[in-house]
Amino acid sequence: MTGAILFHELTARQRVAALVDAGSFSELLPPPERITSPYLAQLGIPVSFDDGLVIGHARIGGKKIYLAAQVGQFVGGAVGEIHGAKLTGLFKAAARDKLPCVLIIESGGVRLHEGSSGEIAIAETMRAIFECRALKVPTIAVIATDIGAFGGIGILSTCCDFRIMTEHGRLGISGPIVIEKWMGKKAYDSANRALVWKTSGGKTKYLLGDADALVHDTADAVRDGISKFLGKSSAVSLVSVKARQKELQKRLKKFGAASDPDTVWKSMGVRDIQAASLASGPEFAALAKRGK
């Protein structure tokens, strides 16, 4: 049905429609309510009826979930006051109703045009995500495009129980242009696609264990990935944070001086870098043993 079209090529609304059981999506604060950003309007920037975030409830494989999808084309999917408040509200609804919450991320972080409001909204949403987690309500982030999850949304994605990525997805805080500006073109060329993807792309994140699944770039594969995590949660406990502390310490010690992402790939069991670069997500996952 949608298998022929790549997931990263769909719009947010198309992604929602392609992921959920047919006809099961019911949108909250839908476009006819016209809740648009008064701030963008003041700056002479076009507004959007959903402020760049589609939210609602739906079913996946019969299971009821809350679902949000960011619109990457609209000011980079960035979080303003309304966008952020919708996101906070959705996770709070998920906690109240004890229903899994899935976030299809496509955002560079805070919407600069609305200043600190978006930043606070991201912090509030992080609190709401952890409210869900304390109740064992699964929170799942999907990162499947090159706009990816950056800035505050990159940090927010790491607060969720699980992250599903595709090889097109990118996860980080500072984007390639910012890094190049800071370090110089010699140290980091943002036009070097291979380097950029090996720095923050799904394959590297999966190897390091920051992405919990690496799936094909199709709606069917993303849906299967989500389904696998709907019944699970990852508790924040003393045991879990101590294990994570050790793991992250080990990672920093091992790779803190690594100048080349290939070093990480090799040490994680990837023998043929060229073949691994060309491999699809699941093929790649099979090629490399998972880094723990």
Binding site: G172, I173, M183, K205, Q245, A257, A258
Partner: peptide, 29 residues
């Protein structure tokens, strides 16, 4: 802020921050 550094990013700085937040959440609980 966070330093826009490519090694930091490659190692998953966001995950390090997420871990710090998880520790604080545990403390709150």
């Amino acid at each position: 802020g966070q330093e826009p550094n490519r090694v930091a990013e490659m190692l998953g700085l966001a995950s390090y921050f997420g871990h710090l937040l998880s520790c604080l959440e545990l403390a709150r609980r």
